[in-house]
Nucleic acid binder design. Structure first.
Length: 571
RNA sequence: AGGGGCGUAGCCAAGUGGUAAGGCAACGGACUUUGACUCCGUCAUUCGUAGGUUCGAACCCUGCCGCCCCUGCCA
C-alpha cells in the first residue's frame, strides 16, 4: 500500500517518463539533482534546470540534491559555489543537507577506475593530446587503436597508481576506457577518463594530481547518490551511451541505476546566455559586472528587481521539450508584471520634470491628498501626498502641438492630476532657445478627487509631484542588451567582437534629475514600486541617503507608445 | 559524409489512431481618476514535405527537405 498517490498528470515529457517508471516500479523513490560546475555565475537557463529538478522532486514526493561538478580544478573556485548556493536559495529551493561535491567521491572514483582496469575495461595510454587527436579518426573515418591499448591489467594498474603518486608529468599519460575506436559515436572511441593535472583544487587542495573527466565522474556520482533521473541538456545526448557504459561496467559496486534524460536549454530573444559571451560582456566593460541589471544572470535579474516568484512562473510557462527554441523575452516581462501588479504599491515619480505653476492656487498652501496604494488591492491601504502651487509633470505629458489621439496636456486643454484636481493649461513659458521650461495652469477647485461634482470628464490623467516636497532621485532605465532577437542562435563561429556589435547602444539610460513623491524617501534597497503610468521600479543598492537610485524592472504596457510610433511613421 | 536529435500559429507548447489544449504576442471591444490592471471577443480546415496503410492519421510506414549537436587530457 502506498502512503499517498503520486501525480498521474505529466507537465512535460520527462514527467511522462517518470510516471511510466513509477507504474512499473511503484516503490521507486524519485531522486534528481542540480549539478552545476562552480566555474561561473548562474543564469536564467540554470533556473530552468533548477525549477525542473527541484520541481519534479517535490511533485513526486522525492528528493533533489545540489551537487557541484568540480572535476576540473583549473576552472573552479569557492567564490562560485557560494554564489550558486545563494542563487538557488533565493530562487526558493532547498537541498536540506544534501549538498554534495564530485570531489567528495575522488577516492571512490579512483577505486572504481582500478576496478575497470582489473576487468580489462580501461588502460593507461602514453599518447599526448596531439597524438590522441590524430588517432581519433573523424566523423566518417574510424579511429585507430592506441599502441598502448593492449597493456596487461597488471601493467595498467601499476602505471595508474604511479600516475596518482605523481611520478609522471602533466599530460604525459591518461587513463582511457577501452571501448571501440571504430564507433560512429566519437564519445565511445576510448575516451579519456583520468588526466594528470597538477592544479590546486578548491576543496581537495593538492591531494590529487589526477582528476576524473566529466563523462566518467558524472554517471558514477549520480549512481552513488542513488539518483533515479539524471536530467541534462541536449548536447549530452551523444554521451548517454557512455554514461550507460560506465554504469553497466560498475553496476556491482553502485547502489543506483540512474537514467539520463536530455531537454533543450533555454534561449531568450535579445539575450545571450553562453558563459563565454556573458564573460565577454563583463570583461569588455559593456556591463557593470555579473550582476548588472541587464544581465540574464540570477544576480543580475535579482538586482534588476525580478522576483523569484516571477522567474519560477516563467520557468513553468516555457515548458520542457527537446526542440531548440528561443522564448520571447516578452513572456519574461509578462511574468514580472503579473507578479508585481498585485504586490507593488503605486506611487508617483516624475522622470523628466517640467515645472507647472498653478496660478490660481494660493501661495504657501499645502493640501494632504489621500492616495490609495493599490487600486486592485484595497488591503494595501492609502497614504497622504502633498499638493501645492508648484508641481512637476513629465515633459512627455505635454505637447505644444499635439497630434491626434494625444489626450494629455496641451495649450488650452484640461487634464486631471491623479488624486488631485483637473487643471487647464493657460500659458507656455519658453527660454531664449524656444524650449518650453514652464507651464502656467489653473486648477478647477470643484474637481478635487473624491469630491468632484463638476460633471467634467477629461481623457487625460497625469502623475505629478509637488515641487517643494519632491525628493530628487536617479532612475536607471534598462532595455534589452541586444537589438537582434536571435542573437544567441545566430552564432556561426562568431568572435566576441561579432556578437558584441549587436549590442543595443541604448540598453541603459540614466536619468539624474528625477523627482519622486516624498513617501519614497522611506524606502530601502530592494523596495519595489509601480511608478504610475511608467513601470515597475526597485531601489538599487547604489542609493545614498541624499540620492535614491531606482532601477526600472520593466515598463508598463504602453498602447500610446504604439500609437505614437505609427503616427511618426506616417508623417 | 558517419552518428545522435528536432520540425504543431509571430514565439513557446499540449497532443501518443477518433477529427488541433493552454500561454505570450498581435488585433478588435467593454471598463477605467494609471493610454495600466481586469473582462469579452478574434487569431492553425491543419501539424516541414510527398506518398502509403486505415472507415479514420499531427500521431503508424516510406522517401525527401530543413535545422541543431558530436572529432577537449572542458562541463
Amino acid at each position: 500500500m502506498s502512503e499517498s498517490s503520486l501525480p498521474t498528470q505529466a507537465a512535460n515529457f520527462i514527467e511522462n517518463i517518470i510516471i511510466e517508471d513509477l507504474a512499473v516500479n511503484p516503490d521507486c523513490k524519485i531522486h534528481t539533482r542540480f549539478p552545476p560546475e562552480p566555474n561561473g555565475y548562474l543564469h536564467i537557463g540554470h533556473a530552468k534546470s533548477i525549477c525542473l529538478n527541484f520541481g519534479i522532486a517535490k511533485k513526486f514526493n522525492g528528493l533533489c540534491n545540489l551537487r557541484f561538478d568540480d572535476t576540473n580544478p583549473s576552472k573552479e573556485e569557492t567564490e562560485y559555489v557560494e554564489s550558486i548556493k545563494e542563487d538557488v536559495h533565493w530562487l526558493g529551493f532547498d537541498w536540506a543537507d544534501r549538498e554534495y561535491y564530485a570531489s567528495d567521491y575522488f577516492e571512490t572514483l579512483y577505486l572504481l577506475a582500478e576496478e575497470l582496469i582489473k576487468n580489462g575495461d580501461a588502460f593507461v595510454c602514453d599518447l599526448d593530446a596531439q597524438q590522441m587527436r590524430e588517432t581519433r579518426g573523424s566523423l566518417t573515418v574510424p579511429g585507430v587503436n592506441s599502441p598502448y591499448r593492449d597493456r596487461t591489467p597488471e601493467e595498467n594498474l601499476d602505471l595508474f597508481r604511479r600516475m596518482r603518486a605523481g611520478e609522471f608529468p602533466d599530460g604525459s599519460r591518461t587513463l582511457r576506457a577501452k571501448i571501440d575506436m571504430a564507433s560512429p559515436n566519437l564519445n565511445m572511441r576510448d575516451p579519456v577518463i583520468y588526466r594528470i593535472m597538477r592544479s590546486t583544487h578548491h576543496r581537495t587542495g593538492d591531494k590529487w594530481c589526477i582528476y576524473p573527466m566529466y563523462d566518467y565522474a558524472h554517471p558514477l556520482s549520480d549512481a552513488l547518490e542513488s539518483i533515479t533521473h539524471s536530467i541534462c541538456t541536449l548536447e549530452f545526448e551523444d554521451h548517454r551511451p557512455l554514461y550507460d557504459w560506465f554504469i553497466e561496467k560498475l553496476k556491482d559496486h553502485l547502489p543506483g541505476r540512474p537514467q539520463q534524460i536530455e531537454f533543450a536549454r533555454l534561449n531568450i530573444t535579445n539575450t545571450v546566455m553562453s558563459k563565454r559571451k556573458l564573460r565577454a560582456l563583463v570583461e569588455n566593460n559593456l556591463v557593470s559586472g555579473w550582476d548588472d541589471p541587464r544581465m540574464p544572470t540570477i544576480s543580475g535579474l535579482r538586482r534588476r528587481g525580478y522576483t523569484p516568484e516571477a522567474i519560477r512562473d516563467f520557468c513553468d510557462r516555457i515548458g520542457v521539450a527537446k526542440s531548440n527554441s528561443t522564448v520571447d523575452v516578452a513572456l519574461l516581462e509578462h511574468c514580472i508584471r503579473e507578479d508585481l501588479n498585485s504586490k507593488a504599491p503605486r506611487v508617483m515619480a516624475v522622470l523628466r520634470p517640467l515645472k507647472v505653476v498653478l496660478t490660481n492656487y494660493p501661495e504657501g498652501q499645502v493640501e494632504e491628498l489621500e492616495a490609495e496604494n493599490n487600486p486592485n488591492n484595497p488591503k494595501m491601504g492609502s497614504r497622504k501626498i502633498p499638493f501645492s502651487r508648484e508641481i512637476y509633470i513629465d515633459r512627455n505629458d505635454f505637447m505644444e502641438e499635439p497630434p491626434k489621439k494625444f489626450f494629455r496636456l496641451a495649450p488650452g486643454r484640461e487634464v486631471r492630476l491623479k488624486h488631485a484636481y483637473i487643471i487647464k493649461c493657460e500659458e507656455v513659458i519658453k527660454n531664449d532657445q524656444g524650449e518650453v521650461i514652464e507651464l502656467h495652469c489653473t486648477i478647477d477647485p470643484s474637481t478635487k478627487s473624491g469630491e468632484d461634482n463638476s460633471g467634467k470628464k477629461v481623457k487625460g490623467v497625469l502623475h505629478w509631484v509637488s515641487a517643494a516636497h519632491a525628493v530628487p532621485a536617479e532612475v536607471r532605465l534598462y532595455d534589452h542588451l541586444f537589438l537582434d532577437d536571435q542573437i544567441e542562435a545566430e552564432e556561426e563561429d562568431s568572435t566576441d567582437k561579432d556578437f558584441m556589435t549587436g549590442i543595443n547602444p541604448n540598453s541603459l539610460e540614466v536619468l539624474t534629475s528625477c523627482m519622486v513623491e516624498p513617501s519614497l524617501a522611506e524606502g530601502s534597497p530592494g523596495s519595489r514600486y509601480q511608478f504610475m503610468r511608467e513601470g515597475y521600479f526597485i531601489i538599487d543598492p547604489d542609493s545614498k541617503p541624499d540620492k535614491i537610485v531606482f532601477n526600472r524592472i520593466v515598463s508598463l504596457r504602453d498602447s500610446w507608445a504604439k500609437i505614437a510610433k505609427t503616427l511618426t511613421q506616417n508623417s
